[in-house]
Design a binder for these strands. Structure first.
Length: 349
DNA sequence: AATACCCTCAACCGCGGAACT
DNA sequence: GAGTTCCGCGGTTGAGGGTAT
């Protein structure tokens, strides 16, 4: 049952907040905590609705907010989480320390989504737009879909635990929740025994499958151009690590622009793929090891990322990777083992 | 310098679910 | 169990700043 339309009293102010209003809200919450948002405006002397106050607080005034440009790692994490969760911005926010759901949503809509589209990747499915799935890929996609649902549910439950734990903190100024704090809360919430606790990890324990995917992807037999490139992954944050090759090439620390992506693509292919394939056919959708990797690791375990490359055009570079059901089964069993053995355990399963 | 267009992001709106009565 | 209230989420909007013409 939904609630009836929210009708505010006339005379309440809307629009941008003034510094005075910010100060009032900040001062009130600092002293009393927010309590009931509905009652807060009157108590704080604000001509605003409670909703507006909550939004201003959560998206702008809260002390544990990181502002400014998104780092490469943050962007990669967003893409990965989006592949798993879709538009579940609030859950993503719990896994991106100090970023608000609104900020993540805005960044996705204004930057990341456009970049994926530009690269020919459907931002909704995280798969290349122009390539239909074959039977083998459908099977693998189903595997990934299942894994994504599974991990998505777990991430959501963890986010809920973080929220519930935060609710226990009455005054945010007494206990400001940084990334390690929230990780600790998850850790505590998921640990039910009374045995002495080992030190909590310093990162949110939330990306097990992402990590496992990436790790397994790298450790998988060389069966396509991607696995052959030996791109380094950061297992802690579940994001790609560009520091080695990227830095060596003088790439910026921010998300690479198209020129840089082309550089990276060249890098990715130069050793293992026929140069004429990588450079001679402009119609081939070259998998740059960021976007395609992020999208397809999550959604296409066959590693046969781009049929136009790995199939007829490529001399069957990835031919033996697809179709080996037993190998795939072992592959996923290993992944599940990895996940099951992850230090965080799972609050859901 | 003026105007049009584009982009970004803070803020609003409406809805669904949880909590309460 | 039904009705009501509150909170939080995701989608959308539009003001304002930046850039192109």
């Amino acid at each position: 049952m939904g609630r009836s339309p929210f009708v505010e009293k006339v005379g309440l102010k809307k629009g941008p907040w003034t510094p005075e209003e910010d100060h009032k809200l900040l001062a009130y919450i600092e002293q009393y905590g927010h309590g009931s948002w509905r009652a807060l405006p009157a108590k704080a002397g604000l001509q605003r609705c409670g909703k507006s106050c909550r939004l201003r607080w959560t998206n702008y005034l809260r002390p544990d907010i990181k502002r400014g440009k998104f780092s490469l790692q943050e962007e990669q994490t967003i893409i990965q989480l989006h592949a798993l969760l879709g538009n579940r911005w609030s859950i993503m926010a719990t896994h991106l320390s100090k970023r608000t759901d609104n900020e993540i949503k805005n960044h996705w809509n204004t930057h990341l989504k456009k970049r994926l589209i530009k690269l020919g990747i459907d931002p909704a499915t995280h798969k290349p737009k122009s390539h239909a799935l074959g039977p083998c890929q459908l099977k693998d996609a189903a595997n990934h879909s299942h894994m994504a649902q599974w991990e998505g549910a777990r991430l959501e439950a963890e986010a809920r635990l973080v929220r519930e734990s935060k609710l226990k903190v009455s005054n945010p100024f007494q206990t400001q929740l940084g990334p390690s704090a929230s990780a600790h809360l998850v850790y505590e919430a998921t640990t039910t025994t009374t045995a002495p606790l080992p030190p909590p990890p310093h990162q949110p324990l939330c990306l097990d499958v992402l990590t496992a995917w990436q790790g397994s992807w790298l450790n998988a037999p060389k069966c396509n151009a991607f696995s052959a490139t030996r791109v380094t992954l950061d297992s802690v944050t579940s994001t790609f690590n560009l520091s080695n090759k990227g830095a060596a090439m003088g790439l910026s620390s921010n998300f690479p622009d198209e020129t840089e992506i082309l550089q990276l693509q060249g890098l990715a292919y130069s050793t293992d793929i026929d140069d004429s394939l990588a450079t001679g056919n402009e119609n081939i959708l070259l998998p740059n090891f960021m976007e395609a990797g992020l999208a397809d690791i999550l959604l296409d375990n066959s590693n046969q990322l781009y049929p136009s490359i790995t199939g007829a055009n490529s001399g069957n570079v990835a031919g033996n990777c697809c179709g080996d059901f037993e190998e795939n089964t072992n592959y996923w069993n290993n992944l599940l083992n990895l996940v099951n053995c992850s230090p965080s355990g799972s609050p859901v399963f």
